[in-house]
């Protein structure tokens, strides 16, 4: 039986090849065919998750909540020292210096990334801004969010910190950061579905040792991950509880 692997649609475009390498590496470790399915949209991916078409997923923390609490997935690993943080940025020449300078009517460019959007909205609260008094335009990636700012179609943009740092220097130089989140305990995780439970010990052992040999290390490098760190039940539950408090 072929196993199905997928990745949260917020993956960096530079890492697409890396996920195919990871897929091949997984097949070797498990001695089982693995199929990688990439999605453009969070919604489409969620439909397939609910239809039980996925065995393994590198998920964003927001979806991890649904996967664990509703679909019986188990988080087994996370990338070492890679928390998901959110940045709110604006044009370099904008008149505001902090979030509290923002006024009702502010035009926001965002993505469909649920974590970054949720955290971005939370970081607007100190200015009394919420969905009732701002306008929100969804863009398909962080480069397009930045372009909306530079073209003056939006006043501020929500970025995954790593996505912001991946923007070219040319673009970054025309922008400034108003606030960066510093949460540190919210991150992507690798989760395994209920159908693959018996393979968790083997998979976890191989993942945690992956950085120790050249082959594994080069796959990790192509994913921008230093090494995997183990996730246990309580660590996962803690992260999910925290996210629960942030969901309106």
């Amino acid at each position: 039986m072929t196993l199905n692997l997928t990745v949260s649609p917020d993956f960096a475009p530079d890492h697409i090849a890396g996920w195919y390498f990871f897929n091949t590496w997984l097949q070797r470790q498990l001695g089982n065919a693995v199929h990688l399915e990439l999605y453009d949209s969070f919604e489409e991916q969620r439909q397939d998750l609910r239809a039980e078409k996925v065995d393994l997923i590198y998920a964003n923390p927001y979806d991890a909540s649904m996967l664990v609490r509703e679909l019986g997935f188990e988080a087994i690993a996370r990338p070492l020292a890679q928390p998901d943080e959110t940045i709110i940025a604006c044009r370099e020449d904008a008149e505001f210096e902090s979030v509290e300078d923002l006024q009702p009517g502010t035009r926001v460019a965002t993505t469909s990334d649920p974590d970054v959007h949720t955290m971005g909205m939370i970081m607007l609260e100190p200015a009394d801004l919420d969905s009732s008094n701002i306008s929100i335009a969804q863009r398909s990636n962080y480069v397009l969010v930045a372009k909306s700012l530079l073209k003056r179609e939006a006043d501020i943009g929500f970025f995954l910190k790593a996505g912001y740092q991946d923007l070219s220097a040319l673009i970054q130089n025309q922008m400034k950061v108003l606030v960066t989140s510093q949460i540190s305990v919210v991150h992507h995780t690798l989760l395994v579905g209920p159908g693959m439970r018996e393979q968790i010990p083997l998979l976890q052992e191989r993942l945690l040792a992956m950085h120790e040999d050249d082959k594994g290390r080069s796959v990790l490098e192509s994913l921008g991950i230093e090494q995997w760190e183990s996730m246990d039940r309580e660590r996962t539950e803690f992260m999910i509880d925290l996210i629960d408090t942030l969901i309106p």
Binding site: E100, P126, A127, L242, T245
Partner: peptide, 12 residues
């Protein structure tokens, strides 16, 4: 129980 706090607005 878990409690998470964030920055409130001056008006609140």
């Amino acid at each position: 129980y878990t409690s998470v706090r964030r920055k409130p607005s001056r008006s609140k």
